[in-house]
Amino acid sequence: MALNEMKFEFKAENPKSINKGWSHFGVVGSGDMEILMEKMDLNGSVQVKIVTPVTGFDNVWGMVMEKFIRSSNLGDVYIEINDNNATPVVVSMRLRQALADANKQEEEVDEDA
C-alpha cells in the first residue's frame, strides 16, 4: 500500500542551474502533479525524487526525466515530485512550465509575488 518512491540522477552537457533559489509548481490533483526545484551544488548533476501511488512505470519516469534534463541542460538542481497518476505528456508539460517559473528573475518575483 505504501507510496512508490523513485530516485534518479542525471548529468547534462554544459549544465545550468535555475535562477531562483527554489521554485514550486503545480497541484497534486487527479492525473496531475507538483514539482519542487531547489538550487543545490550537485557537481553539475540533477537529482530527482518522485513519490507516487503508481507502480510499474519507473522506467518511463526515468526516460521522461532524462529527456527533460538533457534537452534543458539543467544542472545543480534537486527536484522533488509528488504525483497522482499524471500521464507522461502531463509530466513533460508540467516540467517545462515549472522550469519557466523557476527561471523568472528574482526581482520580478518580489515585485509581483
Binding site: M1, L3, V28, L36, V51, T52, E80, N82
Partner: peptide, 19 residues
C-alpha cells in the same frame, strides 16, 4: 511547499501526498 510538511497518514494508505 519548501518545508515539505505533508500528511504522515496518506503514504501508509498508498495515497498521493502534497507538500
Amino acid at each position: 511547499p519548501k518545508d515539505k510538511l505533508s500528511s504522515p497518514h496518506l503514504p501508509v494508505l498508498g495515497e498521493a501526498i502534497e507538500f
